[in-house]
């Protein structure tokens, strides 16, 4: 169905798209905070991926003779050990794995739901649009964090559930943004041209509407990821997230907060890494917004 779209239309939109993106990339590359943030994020992601190879210690090994030791370079405990005698460096990186994974996957869930929902509502319009957006309005007014917490408590600490729950919460704003964008482009000539060429409505939504609303969506995605990471950490902090011996930044921060008077490093390292990640995503999001917003030039 989608393949039936004639090549001429596709070509035209391809060229237009690229030049906009090239422009945006150039602007983004000039934004120092955003570039530095990307480097920081890349480093954190690489550290998380290669965590087991970077330290001589496994993440769940308990060293009975090194309980709650401060950072020590001699024995490879660069961040010290926790109250169970486990290496904090490796545990922090494993926490990064969980946090980043949750951030990216839950955002992907919200992206898929939000973009399709918003595009359909905006494109179809009329009564369908009214009903769909009224539903979003109602959901918006719900205190969702309470439901996420309830879900975690009642159905057990399942990491898969965290993705779904957070994704299901975050799609609302995405849907609103996409709908707004869709409304603004659906009467443009290239959509009419697609109609005239006999592209189906589904084809137009996926082939022409969605690619053209991606700009604001990408900006919002980069701002959603930190929000999701923060929410996951919040849930873990309350003791409702991932289970031992696995860990996440929220769990580590909770333990660090409990022991901060005796062992401040337990709080400082995970908290710093979490804050760095959140900073980086926010700076990239802001940078992208400036780069993609022609009004700002």
């Amino acid at each position: 169905m989608i393949r039936s779209s004639p090549p001429a239309v596709e070509l035209q939109h391809d060229i237009k798209g690229r030049s906009l993106w090239q422009d945006a990339v150039r602007r983004l590359a000039r934004n120092r905070a955003a570039v530095a943030s990307m480097i920081v994020l890349a480093v954190i992601a690489l550290l998380a991926v290669f965590a087991p190879m970077l330290s001589p210690h496994p993440y769940d090994e308990i060293y009975w003779d090194r309980i709650q030791m401060p950072p020590d370079f001699a024995n490879g405990h660069w961040f010290g050990t926790d109250s169970n005698g486990r290496d904090l460096f490796v545990r922090t990186l494993y926490g990064a794995r969980v946090s980043l994974m949750v951030g990216v996957l839950a955002t992907a869930v919200s992206l898929v739901i939000g973009v399709i929902y918003g595009a359909v509502a905006g494109f179809v319009g009329g009564r369908v649009d009214d009903i769909m957006m009224r539903l979003v309005d109602i959901l918006y007014a719900l205190p969702f964090m309470f439901f996420v917490i309830l879900l975690m408590v009642m159905f057990g600490r399942n990491i898969f559930l965290i993705f779904v729950a957070l994704g299901a919460v975050e799609w609302l704003t995405m849907a609103r943004i996409v709908r707004g964008q869709t409304l603004s482009i659906k009467h443009r000539p290239f959509i009419e041209a697609a109609h005239a060429c006999g592209v189906t409505r589904t084809g137009i939504i996926f082939r022409h509407i969605i690619p053209n609303v991606l700009g604001p969506v990408i900006v919002y995605v980069t701002l959603t990821v930190p929000q999701v990471i923060m929410t996951e950490s919040f849930i873990s902090f309350l003791g409702l997230g991932v289970q031992e011996p696995l860990t996440s930044w929220g769990v580590l921060i909770a333990e660090g907060a409990r022991l901060m008077e005796a062992a401040p490093w337990l709080l400082v390292f995970p908290a710093t890494l979490l804050a760095l990640t959140l900073f980086a995503f926010n700076f990239i999001g802001d940078g992208l917004r400036d780069a993609l917003d022609p009004k700002d030039r």
Binding site: S233, I253, A257, M260, P264, L267, A271, L274, N282, F283
Partner: peptide
């Protein structure tokens, strides 16, 4: 403002306590 947004309150709270309280 960026600090306020990027540092969640459950991190800020223990850090503030550590600094001003301890």
């Amino acid at each position: 403002a960026m600090t306020g947004i990027a540092v969640p309150n459950f991190v800020m709270a223990p850090l503030l306590t550590l600094l001003f309280g301890v």
